[in-house]
């Protein structure tokens, strides 16, 4: 491997003074301040929860969902790749033999503990079958009991992708 020599900054008088950099930063701050003072309608603040965010895109990592096959059955084959990749170890799977001839294996239990989940998206990347996605757009998940945060297989299957995602 070749060695790349990176020039070291901060030795010139202009850089040592700091003042020029501070003035540059304050210029940006004051330009925004003046702009927002003249026209308040452009300020990026919403009155949550009455007003819901509109900038959740399909790439946003929301609550998980399990995808389905064309025949509406579970796509997951319980290969445990997501559970292996999960840094929070919050995916609990039990595998059984699949009897309907579509595939050999499927999950009898597939739960995600959302209180332990760190929403890293590792499970989605690890899945070889595109069976788990985080494109539901659900960013706020509120329940009254700890147990209700453990989503089971059927709940995960019932989640719909958000509009605009494919």
């Amino acid at each position: 491997m070749g060695v790349k020599i990176v020039p070291r900054h901060g030795d010139s008088l202009k850089e040592k003074l700091y003042l020029l950099a501070i003035v540059g930063g304050l210029k940006v701050t004051f330009s925004h301040f003046m702009k927002n003072l003249k026209d308040t309608s452009n300020i990026e603040t919403i009155c949550y929860p009455e007003e819901q965010p509109k900038d959740i895109t399909s790439r946003y990592r929301g609550v998980h969902r399990l995808t389905k096959r064309e025949d509406d059955s579970v796509r997951c084959v319980a290969c445990f790749m997501c559970a292996t990749a999960c840094p929070a170890e919050c995916i609990f799977i039990e595998a059984v033999e699949r009897e309907d001839g579509v595939d050999e294996k499927m999950p009898s239990k597939f739960s995600i503990d959302l209180l332990e989940c760190v929403f890293c998206g590792g499970c989605v990347e690890a899945c070889p079958c595109d069976a788990i996605r985080m494109d539901t757009g659900i960013f706020s998940f509120v329940k009254k009991n700890r147990e209700d945060f453990v989503l089971d297989r059927d709940t995960l299957l019932s989640h719909k992708p958000m509009k605009g995602s494919n």
Partner: peptide, 9 residues
Amino acid sequence: IDCPVCDQA
């Protein structure tokens, strides 16, 4: 190539 369902994987 069904490694996801194969026990030998």
